[in-house]
Amino acid sequence: MSDENRKKFLYINRKAPYGTIYALESLEVVLIGAAFEQDVSLAFIDDGVYQLMANQDTAAVGMKNFSKTYRALGDYEVRKLYVEKESLAERGLTAENLMPIVYEDEDDDYAEKPSLIFVDRAEMAALIRSQDVILSF
C-alpha cells in the first residue's frame, strides 16, 4: 500500500491488564489491524504501563496470560511501543521492570532492535498530535 493511503493509527492503553478486559481486547484490535498495513503506534500511559510488566503470572487468578503477545508484535510489523516515563516513575517502576520487546530489522540483516520507546509526557502529547486515528482503551 502506498504511503498516501496509509493512516497513522495510535492505540492508547491506560489500564492495567486483568482487572478489566480492555488491555486484552486492545491487543486483539492491534493484531487484526496489522493486516491493514497502516502506520501503527501503541502508547502506554498511566496504569497501561502495567501491560508490559515482566514476569506476569496469571496461574493463580485463572486468567489467560496474554503478555507474551506483546513480545510477538514485531512479527506483525508493530514496532513502535511508546512508554511514558512519567507514568512509570509515578508507579515506582523503571524500564527494567518491563519485558524486553524487540523486532527483527529486515533492512539491517535481521538485527534485533528494541520496540519499546521511552518518551516523556511532552513527547507523548506531540505523538498524539501527529496521528490520524486514535483508539482509546
Binding site: R14, I45, D46, R121, M124, A125, A126, I128, R129
Partner: peptide, 15 residues
C-alpha cells in the same frame, strides 16, 4: 479517576 489530569497533561496548545 486520573483521566482528566492525564487529558490536561496531554492536550497541546491550540487543542
Amino acid at each position: 479517576r486520573n483521566s482528566f489530569a492525564t487529558c490536561l497533561a496531554h492536550a497541546s496548545a491550540g487543542d
